[in-house]
């Protein structure tokens, strides 16, 4: 029989191993991506890979330039944010600051519930309902365009942005509001001069996380963006963002081939972009915590 101190120590160490599982998986993902994808960088060259717009993985000679795919991802994400940020932040302000509590207790859970709607459902709606509608409105040959992807991604990011921004605004201490009101400011002035500036870094965190979700979103863009690897110069034309390229082509790329490596190469770029987003979100979150704690 082990004595209890040894037993406690063993348990502690086993639990520590579990705690490192996330780090382990994250490291595993990085290793796998680079092991499978890095060869394409040495073969093609990083600048050629990033800045050439010839994505012809199955041609002879093949082209492995992802500039159009990368641009498509960026343009679609920006478009989605142009839609989601005003609606999302305005909703969050209204829910946390203006809406009476009895309604808030209904609206907030509803939005959290909607945050769980799977992306493939948005994809189905975008493909079969929004896209024919847009084709009719703009008289296009196809309704599967960058704009369709922007609208669907924007709508998808709404619940995330609303929910997190609302948390940020609600976290502003009530004493800040009371102080401002006591000095004679009305509720609007208090909101603009006191509440929003305090909550701003929390709202920024929400927006960055929404952007990260949008740029990494796969099924919706795969289904609605149209899939042509064109430069996104016109949002009424089809595009092929990075995630859609990986999902659409992985099935037909033989394991270990250059095409396979190039798709992992795209995943490396995608991973690095989301990593940067996460780091910025983390910094903004930290700043927010300091501000709210009144330091």
């Amino acid at each position: 029989m082990l004595n209890w101190t040894t037993k406690e120590k063993i348990i502690k160490n086993i639990l520590m191993l579990f705690a490192f599982s996330s780090i382990l998986f994250l490291t595993g993902i990085i290793i796998v991506l680079f092991r499978e994808g890095a060869p394409i960088f040495t073969k093609v060259g990083i600048s050629e890979f990033l800045f050439s717009s010839d994505w012809y993985p199955t041609y002879d000679p093949p082209g492995y330039g992802i500039f159009n795919l990368l641009s498509a991802s960026i343009v679609v994400t920006i478009g989605a944010m142009v839609i989601a940020v005003p609606f999302g932040v305005a909703s969050a302000v209204h829910i946390s600051y203006i809406l009476p509590k009895k309604y808030k207790n209904i609206v907030k859970p509803t939005i959290e519930m909607l945050a769980g709607v799977p992306s493939v459902i948005y994809g189905l709606f975008g493909m079969k309902i929004l896209s024919p509608f847009l084709r009719g409105v703009f008289g296009l040959p196809t309704g599967l365009t960058a704009l369709t992807a922007m609208i669907m991604l924007g709508i998808m990011s709404l619940p995330t942005i609303v929910s997190l921004s609302e948390d940020a605004i609600t976290a502003v201490p009530k004493s800040f509001r009371d102080a401002s009101l006591a000095l004679g400011a009305n509720r609007l002035e208090t909101m603009i001069r006191v509440i929003l500036p305090t909550a701003s870094s929390g709202i920024v965190t929400a927006i960055i996380l929404g952007m990260g979700r949008a740029i990494g979103e796969t099924m919706t863009v795969l289904m609605v963006a149209g899939g042509a690897s064109l430069f996104p110069s016109n949002i009424l034309k089809p595009v092929r963002p990075m995630t859609a390229t990986i999902a659409a082509e992985m099935g037909e790329a033989p394991v270990g081939s250059e095409h396979y490596q190039a798709l992992f190469g795209i995943a490396i770029i995608l991973f690095l972009i989301t990593l940067v987003f996460n780091i910025f979100a983390d910094i903004a979150q930290q700043r927010f915590k300091e501000k709210v704690s009144g330091e």
Partner: peptide, 14 residues
């Protein structure tokens, strides 16, 4: 927090 930000398609490749 970084694991939760990894795009779902990247998990698929992993």
């Amino acid at each position: 927090s970084n694991l939760s930000g990894v795009p779902s398609v990247v998990f698929g490749l992993f």
